[in-house]
Amino acid sequence: MRTSFALTGQRPVSVVPVFVKAVLSAALLIHIGWQAAAPPPLARAENLGSPPPASALRVATFGDPVGLSAALMLRLQAFDNQPGVSIPYLALDYAVVEAWLAAALGLDPASQYPLMMAAHLYGQVPDQKRQRQMLDFVHRAFLEAPERRWRWLAHAALMAKHRLGDLPLALRYADDISRHAGTAQSWARQMRIFLLEDIGEREAATVLLGGLLASGELSDPAEVRFLSQRLEELKNAEKSSTPSRFR
């Protein structure tokens, strides 16, 4: 097969005037130098604006809501999950964060990504009001699809007890799991029992994560890695009595 890679019909580079080559090289070098000299972009919490309205998002999907949902989540994640930003979450307007998470979940209800971010990222801030906002979001999302989202509410119940010190809230979440999520793992449907037991957060998280790993719920290697890292940090934080990295 004769391809168009053969340079028949084209003249050699040597026929190009020196002036043209010099201008091209110089302009390219100046352009690259200009870009290199510009300061790198910084993630500023106040730059996070509200998501577009639902009708606009529906049009913007171009018939592919799953793709747009993924794009929204990665955009939100990029604002917060960057090195060098000392207090990324506390400075955020959590109403806006919740709007982004709800928008992404609305576009792709089968995705767990928004709930993972709510429960394990944004819910980790040392601010009770913000934590409650995220737990409330997870709870509302759970009630829309309990069979699919019970494990996030299980984590929320844990957080309600150990981070907020709100046992009644934790028990309410545990009762909702046992009432609405018939296909949840047995340890999750019996969360009320081990919430009422006097065990620490590390032990409870170990039970939660151990149960998930043993049941085969966690199939995504990135998620296993992330949650294992979270557990390690929890163990190290308890040993050294320093706050968690997610502030």
Partner: peptide
């Protein structure tokens, strides 16, 4: 991606 990496990869590539 911190979770659902295959789902995100597939949806990005397909779209």
């Amino acid at each position: 991606a911190i979770t659902e990496s295959t789902r995100l990869q597939t949806s990005f590539y397909a779209g």
